[in-house]
Design a protein around this nucleic acid. Structure first.
Lengths: 207, 207
DNA sequence: AAGTGTGAACCTCTTCACAGCA
DNA sequence: TGCTGTGAAGAGGTTCACACTT
């Protein structure tokens, strides 16, 4: 099977959110142009994406929302669930923990790590906190497969290295620094400064 | 002049960070392959980017770090400085304020907004906080041109509309929702859930 | 009539490969 | 020799346009 493009995966995440909202409102069907406008895309893009994941609708009613949502769930979720480790319990780490807790049943932050004794062995936002020294132990014990980094820039590479050592294959980094991972490990850096500087460039250019 | 691609702007932000670090270490020159490996890119990409912004080096020494950094500053910074408004002083808002304060002299968070009376009229992370009702007034008075959104999903579109009404041309959104802006306004949504779900998909696929 | 599904064209960004230069 | 600068090829993603369906 042809691999699904990263961009399509991102949009699936958006589509799912829109579809879940519509389901709550009791909507049953949706046309590509409606889903497009609700997710800030184009109708052709929506149809292409759904074609890629192998979902089809009908000219009469468009797409059946529940079926489409289920197809996206099947594509994106691991039926056995996936666990996440988060390292760096600062404001950013807490924002993510807060937002995530209980939101996605198949995807949970199973453990958080920090070096501040104040935070260790507490439960923050429903999540148990450990000392960073225990990263390897806990990740292996809990069978964690996804790593989040919300530490300051300085310690981040060391955390990545530990993540990689435990066999984690996907990492999301919010530390404002460039990190290095071996081939085969997915790393996405979501740099706050970079996104604001890009916006600033646009604001300046469009002045 | 040909417009500079968004992707190149993003990398400029990364290059600048690397170059600033090197300057502190006293380095004077750098080759494209070195800058590439420090910023997780390819040498060809680095050369192409520098070509696009009109910076050139020499086969003998590569690029002169200080000159290159200055060219990036000139490209990215507004000489008169740019001001940012941030709405939503939760964990995420504070993370951004904390990180940003005093870091970039030409780019400052000039005002923060919330609806919680606890936070209003205080100074948090060196930034004055106002009630959201004052958005228009303060943005115009302070001549703010960039807007950040770190509110919950529910109120976000209303904030965007207010930003747009005041003439703000670039918005960065961290609220977990799809927002709509008119043509000509730059909007970047940095969705936490989406990035984690994407990583989860990769972890699942690479299992 | 008003949708979907999709080959093909198009556009954007990345990488190759090599001439030119110090 | 080992780099830079860049035309050209390649890869990836988006949009067009239209046959097909209900």
């Amino acid at each position: 099977m042809i691999p699904i493009p990263e961009k399509t995966i991102e949009r699936m995440s958006r589509y799912r959110r829109v579809l879940n909202n519509l389901l709550e409102e009791g909507r049953k069907h949706i046309y590509s142009h409606e889903l497009a406008s609700l997710s800030s895309g184009t109708p052709a893009q929506v149809r292409r994406d759904l074609m890629i994941i192998g979902h089809s609708g009908s000219p009469r009613n468009g797409y059946e929302i529940k079926l489409l949502r289920n197809d996206i769930n099947e594509l994106m979720d691991d039926p056995e669930g996936q666990k996440i480790a988060l390292t760096g319990i600062g404001y950013l780490g807490r924002a993510i923990m807060n937002y995530f807790m209980g939101r996605r049943p198949k995807l949970t932050i199973a453990a958080a790590f920090d070096i501040d004794p104040e935070k260790i062995n507490r439960v923050i936002s429903g999540c148990r906190c450990y000392h960073t020294d225990q990263l390897e132990e806990i990740i292996r014990k809990e069978n964690i497969t996804i790593g989040i980094i919300t530490t300051p820039a300085a310690g981040a590479q060391k955390i990545v290295d530990t993540y990689v050592k435990t066999g984690i294959k996907a990492i999301v980094n919010w530390a404002p620094t460039i990190l290095h991972v071996p081939e085969g490990v997915f790393l996405e850096t979501r740099d706050i400064t970079m996104s604001i500087e890009k916006a600033a460039f646009f604001a300046k250019t469009n002045k």
